Simulated scan of single mutants.
Amino acid sequence: MPGSAHDASVLRQSELFQKAHLLPKAVKNIEGEDLRLMVVGDPSYPLLDWLIKGYTNSPNLTPEQESFNVYLSSLRVGVEMAFAS
Rank of each mutant, 00 (worst) to 15 (best):
S73W: 11
A20T: 08
M1F: 07
K25N: 15
M81V: 08
E66T: 08
P46T: 07
S58Q: 05
P24A: 09
L51I: 04
S9W: 01
S4D: 05
P2N: 04
L75N: 06
K53T: 01
T56Y: 05
D42S: 10
L48V: 08
L47A: 00
D49T: 13
V77M: 14
R76Q: 10
M81R: 14
Q13L: 10
T62D: 00
G3M: 10
E33W: 11
K28V: 13
N57Y: 12
I52H: 00
V40G: 12
S74R: 09
L61Y: 03
R76D: 09
P24C: 04
E66P: 09
R36N: 07
G54N: 09
V10P: 01
L16M: 14
D42E: 06
S67V: 11
E31Y: 10
N57R: 15
S9V: 07
L47R: 05
Q13A: 00
P63E: 05
V10D: 03
Y45T: 00
V79E: 11
K25R: 14
L11G: 04
P43I: 03
W50E: 02
M1E: 12
E15R: 11
D34R: 11
L48H: 14
L37H: 09
L61T: 02
V27S: 01
A26W: 05
S44D: 10
K19Y: 06
E80P: 05
Y45E: 07
A20Q: 12
S4A: 03
A84C: 13
V10T: 11
A8H: 07
L23I: 13
T62A: 02
S4L: 05
V77A: 08
G41S: 05
Q13D: 08
E66F: 02
D42H: 10
